[in-house]
């Protein structure tokens, strides 16, 4: 059933001297979906993308990209992918138009394709300026345009919006969404949980070269339950609030004296906000605010990595 997966990897291993960057990475990205690889710096995200785009040879394991074996048919893989990222870049000395015409020529696409892409990525006004004079956002748009010359089946984006202002980031997000809607499979790495939440159908949390957790954004959030929080009038009331939260959620609350909040994660699906408020009120806690909501991906991420650190410690 490999044909239904645009990216399918088994046991990918990669070492750089003492650094074991990938330790048996397993990925299965269905055709037409957007997969977000999420993880801290050094987790192996970039190595994973470099291996999957034929820039690095895996030490062990295998992978198929767009139906072709990565190691045995790298040329066929290259025919079907587009890559934009921190490293696969454009030529800064050439203008935007020259870059796109060069890549169009190398990919046997008509010259008009360069003009189309300049138009689509709002680069017409800057088309004849050297790319090294572009702003960060323009440069990323040009990178993305250069990776879309032949409408690749699988698009790899390595941290596509790192360091961009919100406006540029939104422009990149819209483009990625459009591509995904048109059926392109997208595999993106990011440190921004909001980015993964907004774009990805599936998220793979990468940690120490392995897929630590995977699922839809909603599933990932569900694995760590809900987030119950109480804001009290005076920090002296925090211990009392903590006792109630501890009893209701079964986990030890985290106290923030500065913000006068007590918060705890719960896997108990029967806990409701009215009950949380009633119990706190009954315990005589002067409550200013209370909430019970799904965690943000940031919270999921911190929680999952914190658990690992706690085990390691």
């Amino acid at each position: 059933m490999t044909s239904t997966y645009a990216v399918l990897s088994e046991g990918l291993e990669k070492r750089f001297g003492d650094v074991h960057a990938l330790r048996g990475l397993e990925l299965a990205v269905p055709e037409g979906s957007v997969c977000g690889l999420l993880g801290p710096n050094g987790a192996g995200k970039t190595t994973a993308v470099r291996v999957l785009t034929t820039l690095l040879t895996p030490d062990a394991g295998s992978a198929r990209v767009a139906g072709h074996d990565l190691v045995r048919e790298p040329h066929a893989v290259r025919r079907n992918i587009g890559v934009a990222g921190q490293y696969a870049s454009v030529d800064g000395d050439l203008t935007g138009a020259e870059n796109l015409r060069l890549f169009a020529k190398l990919l046997r696409a008509p010259r008009t394709r360069a003009a189309e892409l300049l138009e689509r990525f709002d680069l017409v006004a800057a088309a004849d300026r050297p790319a090294h004079t572009y702003s960060g956002g323009m440069r990323r748009r040009l990178d993305l345009a250069a990776s879309l010359i032949t409408r690749p089946r699988v698009l790899f984006l390595d941290e596509p919006t790192t360091g961009l202002d919100p406006h540029s980031r939104n422009a990149i997000w819209d483009s990625v969404r459009e591509l995904a809607d048109a059926g392109t499979t997208v595999l993106l790495t990011t440190q921004y949980l909001e980015e993964a939440d907004r774009l990805a159908d599936d998220i793979v949390l990468i940690d120490e070269g392995r897929a630590a957790h995977r699922g839809t954004p909603a599933e990932l959030k569900a694995t760590i339950g809900s987030y119950a929080q109480a804001v009290v009038a005076d920090r002296a009331d925090l211990p009392a609030a903590a006792v109630v939260l501890d009893r209701l959620t079964g986990t030890e609350p985290v106290l923030d004296a500065e913000r006068r909040t007590a918060a705890a994660i719960t896997l108990d699906a029967t806990l409701t906000l009215p009950r949380l408020v009633r119990e706190l009120d009954a315990a005589g806690v002067p409550l200013l605010d209370a909430s019970l909501r799904p965690p943000t991906l940031d919270e999921v991420f911190l929680r999952l990595t914190a658990t690992k650190e706690a085990i390691a410690a």
Partner: peptide, 13 residues
Amino acid sequence: HRGVMDRFRTLPM
């Protein structure tokens, strides 16, 4: 070291 060669490497050239 400026990335353009890595893009060439990902192309079917």
